[in-house]
């Protein structure tokens, strides 16, 4: 739509409002930049605190320790944000994209068949590696999501037939596991998200694995951009024939 702009669009008159916005923003940015320049540059953050408590966190990687232990509540809510995104997207529309995007070349098909299992392996490795080096649930989940998107655009025949119930359970797995571990800690060691020291490493890996799976599924589901056909099928036998809009 934008590529075929007629000639008169090219010679746009300059909107005075746009100029005003430009200069206003430039001024504000300059002020903010000046503040950054005069601010002290090397304030100590929380790295010493993290280093002091790292041995009690159950993992060796400081980022993972912050993510899942010290600020685990943030991450719990963040997993909920992803879950909420799927909820929101599914509430809006049914999936119109079922994976078919023109002809799939045999090369692509073969490549994806080779790549997808490999990507699953990489994802699992990233999750496991997260406990001592860079990596973790989100990195692993992103790779899983990428594998899911690849499989979706390659039109694998079994994908549209994934039943809705296991899909729902997979999407909710991460939030459920995280929340139950957090509540289990409440009962076991007396505080929300207070991991018992001897079990911390195991619990963190458990949470990471469950979250990675859910994140991968979530990203693929967001790519599809609507609830799958199995979802709500029983309740709305007639909606299929009534076109797109349910206004």
């Amino acid at each position: 739509m934008l590529t075929t702009a007629p000639a008169k669009y090219r010679r746009k008159r300059i909107d005075p409002l746009v100029v005003l916005v430009f200069f206003l923003l430039a001024g504000v940015t300059a002020m903010l930049g000046r503040t950054i320049c005069i601010m002290p540059q090397q304030m100590p953050g929380l790295e010493n605190e993290v280093a002091r408590h790292l041995h009690n966190s159950g993992v060796a990687s400081p980022v993972t320790a912050v993510l899942l232990n010290f600020r685990g509540y943030d991450t719990l809510l963040e997993v909920m944000v992803l879950f909420l995104a799927v909820l929101g997207v599914w509430s809006l529309t049914r999936a119109t994209f079922v994976g078919y995007m023109g002809d799939v070349s045999p090369v692509q098909l073969a490549m994806v068949r080779l790549l997808a299992p490999f990507m699953f392996l990489v994802a699992a490795y990233l999750v496991w590696q997260g406990s001592h080096l860079a990596g973790g649930a989100f990195q692993g989940g992103a790779v899983l999501g990428g594998a899911g998107v690849l499989m979706l655009i390659t039109d694998l025949p079994w994908l549209p037939m994934v039943p809705a119930r296991p899909l729902r359970c997979g999407l909710a797995l991460g939030p459920v596991v995280f929340l139950s571990v957090a509540l289990g800690c409440l009962i076991w060691s007396g505080g929300f998200l207070v991991y018992p020291l001897q079990a911390a490493a195991f619990l963190l890996v458990l949470i990471e694995a469950a979250c990675a799976l859910s994140i991968g599924l979530t990203l693929a589901a967001l790519f599809v951009g609507g609830r799958p056909y199995g979802e709500l099928m029983e309740e709305q036998p007639y909606e299929g024939g009534s076109g797109q809009g349910d206004e």
Binding site: G45, L46, E47, V50, P62, V63, A65, V66, L67, R71, D74, T75, E78, F138
Partner: peptide, 11 residues
């Protein structure tokens, strides 16, 4: 490095 901003950016 300070790991807290990393975690915040990831979130």
């Amino acid at each position: 490095i300070d790991p807290v901003p990393h975690a915040m950016v990831l979130t």
